[in-house]
Simulated assay, not measured.
Amino acid sequence: MDAKQRELLQLIEKNGRLDISTISNLMNITQEETSQMLKKLEKENIILGYSAIINWAKDADEAAVTAMIDVKVTPKRGVGFDKVAERIYRFPEVKAVYLMSGVYDLSVSIEGKTMAEVAQFVSEKLSTIDSVISTTTHFVLKKYKHDGLVFSDQEEDKRMMVTP
């Protein structure tokens, strides 16, 4: 990957809504070069998609429960953890799966409408997979920062500092 491709990726990672003309101006290349570079990176599965980060806590009707689940598994011969991870990430509730170092092997992020729904997923779907030895579920109580963006309603204190 060359420096221009890396620069393009850094730009759209910070703001996926940038249009081609803005990107090409920022990178000092033509719109055609920008378009071709984007298509190439998408075709090579380097750019996997474009998404918005939503603060669902602002919409009481759509608020969801997020849980991080540590999973200890027995890896499968010849494929390691990959097949177990694939089986887990195919569930629609699962938002992310990571292979981890440490006590647990996989970290699974899921969303449900209620804690009971998350608990049901863990007990009926996740724990019943043959390779799963144990799980530990952690519920997200509040998001402060996600993907580099701060979730905050606090306005900056505009009062003048007074010193003695």
Rank of each mutant, 00 (worst) to 15 (best):
A60W: 13
E42I: 01
M37P: 03
E62Y: 10
E33C: 08
Q36H: 11
K58L: 15
E44H: 07
N45C: 06
T30G: 12
A52R: 01
N55M: 05
Q31F: 06
Y50W: 05
A64L: 13
K40H: 08
S35I: 02
A52E: 14
I54R: 11
S51F: 06
I54Q: 11
A60Q: 10
I29L: 08
Q36A: 12
E62D: 10
L41D: 04
E32H: 11
I53S: 02
Q36K: 14
K58G: 06
L38I: 15
K58Y: 13
A57I: 09
K40G: 00
E42L: 03
L41K: 02
M37W: 02
D61C: 08
K58P: 04
A63Q: 14
K40I: 00
Q36D: 09
A64H: 11
L41S: 02
W56C: 03
A67V: 13
Q36V: 10
M68S: 10
I47Y: 09
E62L: 14
T30Y: 08
K40Y: 12
Q31S: 11
I46C: 02
E33Q: 13
W56R: 11
S51Y: 06
L48M: 12
A52C: 04
M37V: 07
Y50E: 05
L48F: 05
L41E: 07
A63M: 15
T30K: 07
A57W: 06
I54P: 03
I69T: 09
A57V: 14
I29V: 12
A67G: 11
I46E: 01
E62P: 02
G49Q: 00
E33S: 14
E33L: 09
T30F: 11
A63C: 11
Y50V: 00
V65H: 06
E42N: 00
E33G: 04
L38M: 15
S51M: 01
E44Q: 11
I53C: 00
S35Y: 14
I54H: 05
L41H: 01
Y50D: 05
K43R: 15
T30C: 09
N55A: 10
L48K: 12
Q31W: 10
W56G: 00
A64Q: 15
L48P: 02
M68F: 15
I54G: 02
V65T: 15
I69H: 02
A52K: 05
I54S: 02
K43C: 00
T30D: 02
T34F: 07
E44D: 09
T66H: 05
I29C: 07
Q31L: 03
M68A: 10
N55R: 05
I53N: 00
I46K: 03
M37E: 06
D59Q: 10
L38S: 03
T66C: 13
E33W: 08
E32K: 13
W56D: 07
S35K: 09
T34R: 06
E42F: 03
I47S: 01
K40W: 06
D61V: 11
K40P: 01
E32T: 14
A67T: 12
M37Y: 01
Q31I: 01
K39V: 00
Q31P: 08
E32W: 09
V65N: 05
T30M: 06
E33P: 06
E42W: 00
A60L: 14
K58T: 07
A67Y: 07
N55H: 08
I53K: 01
I69P: 07
W56Y: 13
A52P: 07
D61R: 12
I47N: 00
E33A: 15
K40D: 03
L38Q: 07
N45Y: 12
M37D: 03
I29S: 04
I47R: 04
I54F: 14
